[in-house]
Structures are given as structure tokens and as C-alpha cells.
Nucleic acid binder design. Structure first.
Lengths: 191, 191
DNA sequence: GTCTATAGTGCGATAGAC
DNA sequence: GTCTATCGCACTATAGAC
């Protein structure tokens, strides 16, 4: 038998979301989360550099989905096609059975500017990762950065629609819709 | 004679940037900034809700430039024209004699993730403000949000070019260039 | 695993401006 | 008298150092 229960990290994440939902972020202490997961405060800070980080565990998996989409695109794909490919990859991260959990998590984040800051930092990192994947496909700067950022723009708006109350369409459909809309508003001006 | 020197807020901001540059963000304490400005730590926290906030004072002015550009655009402007108008407005916030100061400030921010988080939160707020200006001009959702976010995407990339070492072209020229590039990568896929 | 510095809050007191 | 900017002190939680 193991010396510790396995899955400490996951227990901490689950306990944290639970407490944030029920008492709010500010009212929840790191030591309270640790206690709920059966470990000491010190252990909490060994797994997560700060209190906010506990909500942002799966980012690298999402990044891989984005870039895997780009890497899998055909050789002759245009930058616009690559954006579509990245979004299709990201869509795999959000099957319908994840929607309820996403709503719950996002409600916590939306209620706390400190958590929004952390989320924005993670998303900015994602945009950089995607831009790097574009650059690997030969897209020059500044187009690669713009394309990476645009992927995240579409992603963000589509995600907001996806978790809206009553929405039932799958993520991929919404992302495709929003991408088309972006093509219109971002078109060349004055002609 | 007044009981206190006026301009406490500005003195705190100047002292903070100075100390952040010379000793780094983490090594600079709030009470150190306060002392350098001739007030107590408690006064620092009355002007700024937290230590990072001291670097982000002029955001609302920038927001006004963005939205003023949108508001001043002609009645029949397309969404793409409105994006150009917003960027022209923002450009007025960055005359060439501001470039050295911007480089200095950005170097501090780039060196500290905590400051990047705060900056991203401010920029996200700007994107929302611009989106609201678009919505006021009758642009429906989700196009307004996409256009607002795209303004900030172009702004961010153009700003990065503007403060690059050796760059001398004015902000407006770079923004226009980047905007054209965005139109290409964000165009409709698959045709 | 303990110890400590710092961020950030709450509250009462002060003293000028109006 | 009210309003507002400041001080000063006590306090907790975070987060990192040892």
C-alpha cells in the first residue's frame, strides 16, 4: 500500500473548485483547500505555485490540441485553413459532456478578477504556442502572431457562446460560425 | 500652504517605475515606493489597490482614444473601417516622444509574469470598451466582440514592433501595416 | 516542516479645506 | 459642522526561504 493516497493534485483541484463555488475565492484559504484534500498547506504550495494556479491544470493539454490540429493540416493549407485546423483541434477538448463542468468553472473565474488575470496569462501563452506552430509551417511574422492570436479570439468568443445558458450546439459548430464572422470584420478596410 | 504636497499619485507612479527598473519588481516593496514618494505604505494602498496597479494608470485615457476614433468615423463606415478608425485614435496616444518611456515600462512588465497578468486584464477591458463602441454603432454580436478583440490584436502586435530596438516608423504606420496583414490571415478559409 | 517577510485590509485619529 | 487625504497600528494570509 502506498504511503500517500495517490491523486493528491487532483483531489486538491476538486476540493478547490468545490470551495470556490460554495464560499467564494477570497473566503477560501489555501490551508482550507489543503485540509479538505487531507494534506497540509505546505503540500498545497508544492503542487501549485499560488492559490489561483489550482484552477488552471489542463492548459498544456489544450495547447497540444491546438498545435496538433495545425500539424495535421495538409501541406498546401493557407494561413486561414491553418486557423480552421487549429480550432478543430481545440474543439476536441470540449465534448458536450464537459459543458456543465466548464460552466461551473467559468462562473468562478468570472466572479474574480484575480482569476481572470491568470486565465488571460494562460490564454496568451496558448496564443504564443499556436503562433509558434504557424511559424513552423513557414508562416512569417507578424502573420504568425496575428494568426495565433486570432485563433484565441475565435476560441474565446466561441467558448462564451458554448457555455451560454440554453446553448446546445457543439463547440466545433460555434467555432466555425465565429471564424466566418471574424473573416468579415477583419477584412481589408476601405474598398 | 497645503498640509501635503499635491500629486502624490504621480510621485508614487514615478518612484515605482524608477525602483522597478533599478532593483526589479519583487525586490521593491510597497513601503519602499511610499518612502521614495514621501508618504507611508498605507497611503500607497489608498491610491493603488495593489502593488502592480501603480504601473497601469493611464488606461482609461487610451480607452477614450480608441472609442473616440470609432465615434468620429463616418456614418457609412464598414466594420473594417471602424477598426481602422479605432487604431488611428489609439495611435494618437503614442507620439514618437513617448517611445523611450514605453520601452522602459514594457521592459519591466516583460520581466514579471505578475505584471503581464495585470496588463492582459487591462487590455481585455479595453477590448470590451472598443466592442461596446462598435455595438453602439449598430454592429451586432458576435461581430462587435470580434472587432473589439481584433483591434487589440493589431494594437498589441503593432506596439511590439513600435518599441522594437532600432524601429523609427510612427505607430500609425505600423498599425496600418499590421491591420493589412490581419486581413490576409483572417480571411475566410478554404477558397 | 518551521519560520518569516510582505501584501493587503480594517479601523480610529488627525488636520487642513470648504 | 462636513469632507477628504493622511497617518499609525493591529491583523491575516500568502508565499518563499531556511
Amino acid at each position: 500500500m502506498a504511503r500517500w493516497e495517490p491523486g493528491t493534485r487532483e483531489r486538491l483541484q476538486a476540493a478547490a473548485l468545490e470551495l470556490f463555488v460554495s464560499q467564494g475565492f477570497d473566503e477560501t484559504t489555501a490551508s482550507g483547500i489543503a485540509a479538505a484534500a487531507g494534506v497540509t498547506e505546505r503540500t498545497f504550495f508544492r503542487h501549485f505555485t499560488d492559490k489561483r494556479e489550482v484552477l488552471f491544470g489542463g492548459q498544456h493539454v489544450l495547447a497540444e490540441r491546438f498545435t496538433a490540429g495545425v500539424d495535421a493540416a495538409p501541406e498546401d493549407a493557407s494561413p486561414a485553413d491553418l486557423v480552421s485546423a487549429a480550432l478543430r483541434g481545440a474543439g476536441e477538448f470540449f465534448p458536450d459532456d464537459r459543458r456543465a463542468w466548464s460552466r461551473r468553472r467559468q462562473a468562478v473565474i468570472d466572479a474574480h478578477p484575480a482569476l481572470q488575470e491568470r486565465e488571460l496569462l494562460k490564454l496568451a501563452g496558448l496564443a504564443r504556442d499556436v503562433a509558434a506552430a504557424f511559424a513552423d509551417r513557414g508562416v512569417p511574422e507578424p502573420a504568425a502572431s496575428l494568426a495565433g492570436q486570432s485563433c484565441l479570439t475565435v476560441f474565446g468568443v466561441a467558448f462564451g457562446l458554448w457555455i451560454a445558458e440554453g446553448e446546445t450546439r457543439p463547440f466545433a459548430e460555434l467555432a466555425s460560425l465565429v471564424h466566418g464572422e471574424l473573416a468579415r470584420v477583419a477584412s481589408a478596410p476601405g474598398r
